[in-house]
């Protein structure tokens, strides 16, 4: 099994109401120089390793985990170090 981390964010150009609220909040707390805050999701899965792993992950993202109409996804596969 491998650990898969899926990150989901709103597509570029899609106004992100949550990101905007966080950005305003940071600025009112006095943090300067913060721009383009976006809020998304992180989903962690354990997936059986093997052939077609990436294709399987992408299919899961396209079909369920992300909504391709407004969201982008990226993922990272983490293999445990073998001895």
């Amino acid at each position: 099994m491998v650990n898969v981390h899926v990150y989901i964010t709103l597509k570029e150009g899609v106004l992100d109401p949550q990101g905007k609220a966080v950005e305003h909040s940071l600025s009112s707390l006095g943090y300067e120089g913060v721009e383009e805050v976006s809020v998304g999701k992180w989903i962690q899965l354990k997936v059986k390793d093997g052939e077609g792993l990436e294709t399987r992950i992408e299919a899961m993202c396209e079909q369920l985990l992300a909504n391709p109409v407004i969201e982008n996804y990226t993922y990272k596969v983490e293999r445990e170090a073998t001895v």
Partner: peptide, 11 residues
């Protein structure tokens, strides 16, 4: 149906 729903603009 086309499109998708985001959080309301004022959250």
């Amino acid at each position: 149906l086309p499109g998708a729903m985001k959080r309301n603009k004022d959250l």
